[in-house]
Amino acid sequence: MHMADALLSPAVGGTMWAVTAGVAAYSIKKVQNELDEQKIPLMGVLGAFVFAAQMINFTIPGTGSSGHLGGGTLLAILLGPYAGFLTLASVLVIQALFFADGGLLALGCNIFNLGFYTCFIAYPLIYKLLVHKGYSTGRIFAGSLLAAIIGLQLGAFSVVLQTLFSGITELPFRTFVMLMQPIHLAIGVVEGLITAAVVVFIWKARPEIIEKAASGQTIGSSDIKKVLAGFAVIAIITGGVFSWFASANPDGLEWSMFNTSGKEELEMPGGIHQTLASIQEKIAILPDYSFKSSEQEVDGDAPETEGWPAVNAGTSVSGLAGGAMTLLLAAITGLIIRSIKKREKARAV
């Protein structure tokens, strides 16, 4: 699955952006060093191919459902890990922009989850290992299938970690893993079978494509180590910076008037406060309505164990009313702008 912006915290999203940018920068350097300019249009067109092929529904035998091609493994096999990673990245950029797949903040996560494991782990350690003895239909099939499955498993696990670190979901780690891995095993098998079927077809029809892609790209263990080490360094640094930032500025993460005891929101500078108070007296719909009973009741029910949730019926209701008012104001603003524009247009005509 694609990671979504809404499930991310800024720290996790930012860290993954930095890590992905690091891997991409290293890949760009590698691709440029190869000086095979013919590869540039090939990357572009194959990116478009993956995009288009993912729109084709493949019927899964024995079930009513359908599966899709997964891109990472196939691109790594056709283009090598570095160019494959970059191509997948551009596909994901376009999907995030045009198809709301994931989102822009989650883009770092998604490129990493779908590109890094397939291109830099599954491809060299599984596919290459299986076919390096020599190409045969069986080895190519098994290699692509396994690489796709394992790449996706790692990616899915990564999604679990990113979501949990972000602290948005209440799902316990174990439940989440038990949920994600089997689902993605099923998806991975289908994606792997499609990938394997395509790679074998190409191998039979145009063997030079498969061989050429693999021969130009020797990704030695030292390269993998370099990539992994670089990745670790970037992750630690950015993760550290973000968490330092977060701890030095605890308000940044926890700050909320809505959920704190309600005192802060009244601690506004005196002048403003008084002005507001006098305005309020005039316009308040339900002045001095404070739900004292329920407030006490709740205070008894849910003692402020973690300093949160500190609940107060008064703030709750006014929060709700204020929220509704905000949305209403936004809608009115939109309508006003649109009607002004319409009038301008009419005048122009």
């Binding site: 929101e265 308040a284 929060g319 709700l320 009313a321």
Partner: peptide, 10 residues
């Protein structure tokens, strides 16, 4: 919104 709410109902 809390400010608005507060203004509205106090």
């Amino acid at each position: 919104p809390a400010m608005i709410g507060w203004l509205m109902m106090g």
